[in-house]
Design a binder for these strands. Structure first.
Lengths: 245, 245
DNA sequence: ATTTTTGATTTGTGATCACACTTGTATTGA
DNA sequence: TCAATACAAGTGTGATCACAAATCAAAAAT
């Protein structure tokens, strides 16, 4: 990035790309890894090396190690006693643990949001439903990435309306932790002829538009429980078939 | 730390102090800062510099910057646009936000713990009450540090029994964030002739010993709300008197 | 006297190096 | 043939340096 002092003057293009936004390399790496984690691009139990990521992200090891450290403290990654770091493996206990925490905290967030959202804000959320239908219309190629991204935008647009600077980062941390599980579940959905996700989102919007916190919470719980329950069944049946073989 | 290769052989003392525990300097710095934050040793709005902390902790800047990055992601510290980092200032909104989150999550944790704790575990908690009384007996010098530490041990001994690897780190993060507020409140308590904290803890233990999750949750809420309410009143009266002057 | 400008100091960020430790493989021994 | 040892490649950690940006102080101009 910063090799010589000369670059400063002879690199107007880079200056144009980042004219005022003081984005550090460390933050870029952190956000990149975060996105990959939430999207489930890394598979559970996969080990990550500092130098490997540094090469892949075209920087030195320095920003990567700081980003990894931050992700470890949010439990998005796991530090092994060997000092190597991996994405945490999926276990049934951990899944239930994560789901319970998400129901608790995201449920509270949407209940708060339901009482605080203006009709203007609700309409913004509602318009995102249309995007979802669009995507489902041309579903020949199952665009899992876009599905994950859209789902994330939908939920966090709501959570942001709860107005809690404490709850939102916690929810982000929970999504970070459950990202790998979710991706596995969504793949399984696609194979198993998936239920209409938009239906659940419509129920949420309906509850929000009449400011019904209780119903909104219930609808949200149903929505976020779905992939977990699906994955739990899948893992249990796999374990059962393995036990009999 | 690691100057020459010779140190390895000619430093048996250090080897004895850390015979097998592979403690890195980074972790030491992180835990040190964490302890200071929860204990409220830094005052709100105080800015921290990497080199300053590195000198104080007798290491290079490297472990400090990583520790600071980790604390920033848990919202225990705040990154200013200047790239300097400070402990977040206290505002009424933030206090209410923190208290609500703590009631939600710690309440859930103790409710879980109430149903899962063995009588053995309850007796361990109960014995900590005795320590508390001891300390209060010889209270000529108000040992705020010990008070904070003891309170922390009491609560986390309970939370650990909830058995959730997801909730506990979140609670730690919340304590980290509310640490500075609490310290201010405890000082105020000492000045204002403090209420008996042990009384609240006894109520909690009583509820736990009969495995009553609801009562335990209520008792806990009363306990953790106290310093927040006290501090809120203090800040509001200060603001009022400033408005009239 | 107030404002502006300039220069020096401080501070965060990224890169690189040195070292300890782990891991995996090949070589040597029985 | 198999086990144990030794060697080599790889990896995380800490220290140090270079640089840019911010901060602060003093000097200059209005």
């Amino acid at each position: 990035m910063q090799k010589t002092a000369v670059e400063k003057s002879n690199d107007p293009i880079a200056a144009q790309l980042a004219p005022v936004g003081r984005e550090t390399v460390q933050d870029r790496v952190y956000l990149e890894l975060r996105r990959a984690l939430i999207g489930g691009l890394f598979e559970p139990s996969q080990v990550l090396t500092i130098r490997g990521l540094a090469d892949a992200l075209m920087t030195s090891t320095m920003p990567v190690r700081e980003a990894l450290g931050r992700l470890i403290t949010e439990k998005a990654l796991e530090a092994l006693p060997n000092r190597s770091v991996r994405v945490p493996p999926i276990t049934l206990e951990r899944m239930d643990d994560l789901l319970r925490a998400r129901i608790l905290i995201e449920g509270e967030a949407i209940a708060l949001a339901a009482t605080r959202m203006s009709p203007r804000q609700v309409s913004v959320i509602e318009s995102m439903l249309g995007e979802w239908d669009e995507m489902r219309a041309l579903k020949h190629k199952k665009d899992v990435d876009r599905e994950v991204t859209l789902n994330q935008s939908f939920h966090f647009e709501i959570y942001r309306a709860c107005g809690s600077a404490v709850l939102i980062p916690m929810i982000e941390s929970l999504w970070l932790q459950s990202g790998p599980c979710i991706r596995v579940a969504i793949y399984a959905f696609s194979e198993a002829g998936e239920v209409d996700t938009a239906h659940f989102h419509r129920s949420i919007v309906a509850a929000l538009s009449v400011q019904d916190a209780t119903v909104a919470r219930e609808a949200l719980v149903a929505d976020i429980s779905r992939p977990f329950n699906f994955l739990r069944n899948k893992l249990q049946s796999e374990a059962a078939s393995k036990g009999t073989s």
